[in-house]
Simulated assay, not measured.
Amino acid sequence: MPDVIDWTPKARAVLEAAAELFYAHGIHAVGVDVIAEHAGVTKKTLYDRFGSKERLVVEYLAERDRQWWAFLDRYLERTRPDSVARVAAVFEAAARWACERGRKGCAMINAHAEIGDPEHPAYAVLTGQKRRMLALFTELATRAGADEPESAGAHIMLLHEGALVCAGMHSLEDAFTRAGKVAVDLLR
């Protein structure tokens, strides 16, 4: 397995194909032969660039995580650093992301259903993303002046994760709007 990936156009094509297929069908349901065909490369090229399907899964989840944080940053930049509006901005960003890129729910939650082994290299990406979200909510609760920011951050995290699941399952209309309102009320 290569330590550093040479991000050639073919490597990018493989990652894009894998991202599309993994998100649409699940990680275990998609084989490297299907990914290679979808990317227009050979399996040898896929293995030359990524070394294994496992590494490709790690890169898919890490890229999705990177894209989420870049997307979220654009929403957070519009608000004052110490305002409760930053919490509302996270829920607004999540709603937009779900509408544009997450019709099947959270990629991290979906992947965790398939990768529950803490020894799997992708496990750290999955849990790391959720830890960073909790840290963000705790920081936002602190900046908003919450009396118990760790507790408030945990409650907001639960609201956010619940909204992710409800939106992904299409079981509750306006899940992010509703959860975001409760989160903001919690901090007021």
Results as ranks from 00 to 15, higher is better:
4 V>D: 13
4 V>C: 08
7 W>D: 05
9 P>S: 01
9 P>H: 00
11 A>R: 02
11 A>W: 07
12 R>G: 05
12 R>T: 14
15 L>P: 15
18 A>Y: 03
23 Y>I: 00
27 I>T: 01
30 V>A: 09
33 D>Y: 07
34 V>Y: 06
36 A>K: 06
40 G>Q: 06
41 V>A: 04
42 T>W: 07
44 K>A: 15
47 Y>R: 07
47 Y>G: 03
48 D>E: 11
50 F>S: 00
51 G>A: 01
52 S>Y: 11
53 K>Q: 09
53 K>V: 07
55 R>Y: 09
55 R>T: 06
57 V>Q: 07
57 V>W: 01
59 E>Q: 12
62 A>G: 10
66 R>P: 07
68 W>K: 03
71 F>Q: 02
72 L>P: 01
73 D>W: 11
74 R>T: 12
75 Y>Q: 06
78 R>C: 02
80 R>C: 10
82 D>S: 12
84 V>E: 09
85 A>G: 12
88 A>T: 07
99 C>P: 07
101 R>K: 12
102 G>R: 05
103 R>D: 05
105 G>H: 04
105 G>T: 06
108 M>N: 03
108 M>C: 08
109 I>D: 15
114 E>T: 05
116 G>P: 00
121 P>A: 07
126 L>V: 11
130 K>H: 15
132 R>A: 13
132 R>M: 02
137 F>D: 06
141 A>N: 04
142 T>D: 09
145 G>C: 01
145 G>T: 08
146 A>M: 03
146 A>L: 04
150 E>A: 13
153 G>D: 04
155 H>G: 13
155 H>T: 14
159 L>F: 12
160 H>I: 09
162 G>H: 00
164 L>V: 04
168 G>W: 00
169 M>R: 15
169 M>K: 14
170 H>R: 14
171 S>D: 10
172 L>F: 01
178 R>T: 08
179 A>M: 05
181 K>R: 15
182 V>E: 14
185 D>C: 10
185 D>I: 04
186 L>R: 07
188 R>S: 10
